[in-house]
Measured scan of single mutants.
Amino acid sequence: KNALMQLNEIKPGLQYTLLSQTGPVHAPLFVMSVEVNGQVFEGSGPTKKKAKLHAAEKALR
């Protein structure tokens, strides 16, 4: 199970927000955030999926 699945089991129905998309078309950088218990966690990556995963990993720490 990855961090997204684990976080969804603990806190179902979380909303992930796209904060920014920067970089060239062939190498974009997405920044996504998720709010858990009033705290906002951000993650970035080359795809929205990876950015969401990194945000979930930070939220689980």
Rank of each mutant, 00 (worst) to 15 (best):
residue 1 K to L: 12
residue 1 K to Y: 06
residue 2 N to A: 04
residue 2 N to V: 04
residue 2 N to F: 04
residue 3 A to P: 15
residue 4 L to E: 10
residue 4 L to Q: 09
residue 5 M to S: 15
residue 6 Q to E: 15
residue 6 Q to G: 06
residue 6 Q to D: 08
residue 7 L to T: 00
residue 7 L to N: 02
residue 8 N to I: 07
residue 8 N to R: 15
residue 8 N to K: 13
residue 8 N to D: 15
residue 9 E to V: 10
residue 9 E to M: 14
residue 9 E to S: 12
residue 9 E to Q: 10
residue 9 E to P: 00
residue 10 I to T: 07
residue 10 I to R: 11
residue 10 I to M: 15
residue 11 K to Q: 15
residue 11 K to I: 15
residue 11 K to L: 12
residue 12 P to T: 04
residue 13 G to A: 08
residue 13 G to C: 07
residue 13 G to L: 04
residue 14 L to H: 03
residue 14 L to V: 13
residue 14 L to S: 09
residue 15 Q to W: 04
residue 15 Q to I: 11
residue 16 Y to L: 02
residue 16 Y to A: 03
residue 16 Y to E: 03
residue 16 Y to V: 02
residue 17 T to D: 04
residue 17 T to P: 01
residue 17 T to I: 11
residue 18 L to I: 08
residue 18 L to Q: 07
residue 18 L to H: 04
residue 18 L to C: 11
residue 19 L to R: 13
residue 19 L to S: 12
residue 19 L to C: 13
residue 19 L to G: 05
residue 19 L to D: 07
residue 20 S to A: 12
residue 20 S to G: 11
residue 21 Q to Y: 07
residue 21 Q to H: 11
residue 22 T to H: 08
residue 22 T to E: 12
residue 22 T to V: 08
residue 22 T to I: 07
residue 23 G to W: 01
residue 23 G to R: 04
residue 23 G to D: 07
residue 23 G to M: 04
residue 24 P to D: 15
residue 24 P to G: 13
residue 25 V to D: 14
residue 25 V to G: 15
residue 25 V to C: 13
residue 25 V to F: 08
residue 25 V to P: 15
residue 25 V to R: 15
residue 26 H to V: 05
residue 26 H to P: 06
residue 26 H to M: 07
residue 26 H to A: 07
residue 27 A to N: 10
residue 27 A to D: 12
residue 27 A to R: 14
residue 27 A to W: 03
residue 28 P to T: 09
residue 28 P to R: 13
residue 28 P to H: 13
residue 29 L to S: 13
residue 29 L to E: 13
residue 29 L to G: 09
residue 29 L to W: 14
residue 29 L to A: 11
residue 30 F to I: 07
residue 30 F to L: 03
residue 30 F to Q: 02
residue 31 V to L: 12
residue 32 M to K: 00
residue 33 S to W: 04
residue 33 S to A: 14
residue 33 S to F: 04
residue 34 V to I: 07
residue 34 V to C: 07
residue 34 V to E: 02
residue 34 V to P: 01
residue 34 V to Y: 01
residue 34 V to M: 05
residue 35 E to K: 09
residue 35 E to S: 11
residue 35 E to R: 05
residue 35 E to V: 10
residue 35 E to G: 05
residue 36 V to R: 02
residue 36 V to G: 02
residue 36 V to T: 04
residue 36 V to E: 02
residue 37 N to E: 13
residue 37 N to P: 00
residue 37 N to D: 14
residue 37 N to M: 09
residue 37 N to L: 08
residue 38 G to E: 05
residue 38 G to T: 02
residue 38 G to I: 01
residue 38 G to Y: 02
residue 38 G to F: 02
residue 38 G to M: 02
residue 39 Q to L: 10
residue 41 F to T: 04
residue 41 F to P: 00
residue 42 E to R: 07
residue 42 E to P: 02
residue 42 E to F: 06
residue 43 G to A: 06
residue 43 G to E: 01
residue 44 S to F: 05
residue 44 S to A: 09
residue 45 G to W: 00
residue 45 G to Y: 00
residue 45 G to S: 00
residue 45 G to P: 00
residue 45 G to E: 00
residue 46 P to C: 09
residue 46 P to D: 12
residue 47 T to R: 01
residue 47 T to C: 04
residue 47 T to I: 00
residue 47 T to P: 00
residue 48 K to T: 07
residue 48 K to G: 03
residue 49 K to Q: 13
residue 49 K to L: 14
residue 49 K to G: 14
residue 50 K to Q: 11
residue 50 K to Y: 07
residue 50 K to N: 06
residue 50 K to A: 14
residue 50 K to T: 10
residue 51 A to R: 00
residue 51 A to W: 01
residue 51 A to P: 00
residue 52 K to E: 05
residue 52 K to D: 01
residue 52 K to I: 04
residue 52 K to T: 06
residue 52 K to Q: 12
residue 53 L to H: 14
residue 53 L to V: 07
residue 53 L to M: 05
residue 54 H to V: 13
residue 54 H to A: 13
residue 54 H to C: 11
residue 55 A to W: 00
residue 56 A to V: 02
residue 56 A to N: 03
residue 56 A to E: 02
residue 57 E to I: 08
residue 57 E to N: 09
residue 57 E to Y: 04
residue 58 K to Q: 15
residue 58 K to W: 04
residue 58 K to Y: 06
residue 60 L to T: 02
residue 60 L to I: 10
residue 60 L to E: 00
residue 61 R to E: 14
residue 61 R to H: 11
residue 61 R to G: 11
residue 61 R to S: 10
residue 61 R to C: 11
